[in-house]
Simulated scan of single mutants.
Amino acid sequence: MATSEVQTVNSSADKAKLAAAVLLLVAGFVGYYLLASQGSLVRVGVLLGGILAAIIAFAVSEPGRQLIAFARDSWRETKKVVWPARKEAIQMTAYVFAFVFVMALFLWLTDKTLEWVLFDLVLGWRK
């Protein structure tokens, strides 16, 4: 029997880093709105500074390092994918569109047939 394991933040240092990241993010947004009388360059600078500081605080925590490692592994796996040639991609797209059209036609015909059977023959609503 397989057990599902939920990963949590274990160390108090990581909890503090995550809390700091959230506080820095909130501080950036609050600063943006509190500095409404300042120029837009100052306000956007405070907002971006808060977001950047929050990203840095998150990146130095263990969950942040795990996320960065996951992103690197994902990028590495993406490079291994063999993408189809343009001709193959166009052919497959055409097959999908043709299949969708045929299925739509089939479902429309089925709907109209059932409508005719139920309303005209069984219930006699349309005369």
Rank of each mutant, 00 (worst) to 15 (best):
Y33I: 14
R65K: 15
T113M: 09
S12E: 15
T110P: 02
F106Y: 09
S37G: 05
F119I: 02
A2I: 12
I56A: 01
K80E: 15
L118A: 06
W116E: 08
I51T: 01
P63H: 04
S40E: 15
K15S: 11
L23W: 06
I56G: 00
T3M: 13
A98N: 04
A36N: 13
I68N: 07
V44M: 08
E115C: 04
I51C: 00
V42S: 05
F70V: 06
A20I: 11
Q38E: 14
A21Y: 04
S37I: 13
A94D: 05
A57H: 02
V100I: 10
T113W: 05
L109F: 03
F101Q: 04
A13L: 15
S11H: 07
K127E: 15
K80D: 13
F97W: 11
L23I: 09
A104E: 03
D73S: 12
R76C: 06
F99W: 07
V81G: 06
M92T: 09
V6G: 10
S12M: 15
I90Q: 11
S40G: 11
T3E: 15
P63L: 05
T3N: 10
W83G: 08
S4H: 13
A104N: 03
I68E: 04
F97P: 01
F101M: 08
W83M: 14
R72K: 14
V26T: 06
S11Q: 10
I90G: 03
A21D: 02
A54Y: 01
T93G: 09
E115Q: 10
A104S: 06
G39L: 04
V42Y: 14
A13D: 12
S37L: 11
R43N: 03
T78M: 14
E62H: 07
V96S: 04
D14N: 05
K80G: 05
L18K: 09
I51Y: 00
G124V: 06
F97L: 10
N10E: 15
T110F: 15
L47N: 01
A13G: 07
L118R: 10
L41C: 07
G39W: 03
S74H: 09
S40M: 15
M92I: 05
L41P: 06
L52T: 10
A2D: 15
L23F: 09
A16R: 12
G49W: 00
K15M: 10
Q66I: 13
E77I: 12
R43C: 00
R72C: 05
G49Q: 00
V22T: 13
W125R: 06
L47V: 01
L109Y: 02
A85Y: 07
A89V: 08
A69H: 10
G28S: 08
L24H: 02
E62R: 12
F106W: 05
L23V: 08
